[in-house]
């Protein structure tokens, strides 16, 4: 797969994980889940966000594009 598509997919995953974090918080706000579940979900989403966002950022680097 072309590098640019991987970059777009990574960026999309990063943004989706942010949307999910907001969704999980609103779900908790509605008292649908426990605090522990929310904390776990937020942490997992955070990990996914940073991996995906870092991936998208690294693939954007000109020095890597030139290799």
């Amino acid at each position: 797969m072309k590098k640019i598509y991987v970059r777009y997919i990574s960026a999309a995953i990063a943004w989706i994980s942010l949307v999910l974090m907001l969704f999980f918080s609103l779900e908790y706000f509605n008292s649908s889940v426990s605090a522990e579940v929310l904390k776990t979900r937020l942490f997992m989403s955070t990990v996914i966000y940073f991996i995906a966002a870092a991936g998208a950022e690294i693939l954007k680097t000109p020095s890597i594009d030139n290799k």
Binding site: M21, Y28, F29, F50
Partner: peptide, 11 residues
């Protein structure tokens, strides 16, 4: 991410 977490703190 940080801006969102700040909002989540409030919520």
């Amino acid at each position: 991410w940080m801006v969102l977490v700040f909002i989540i703190f409030g919520l």
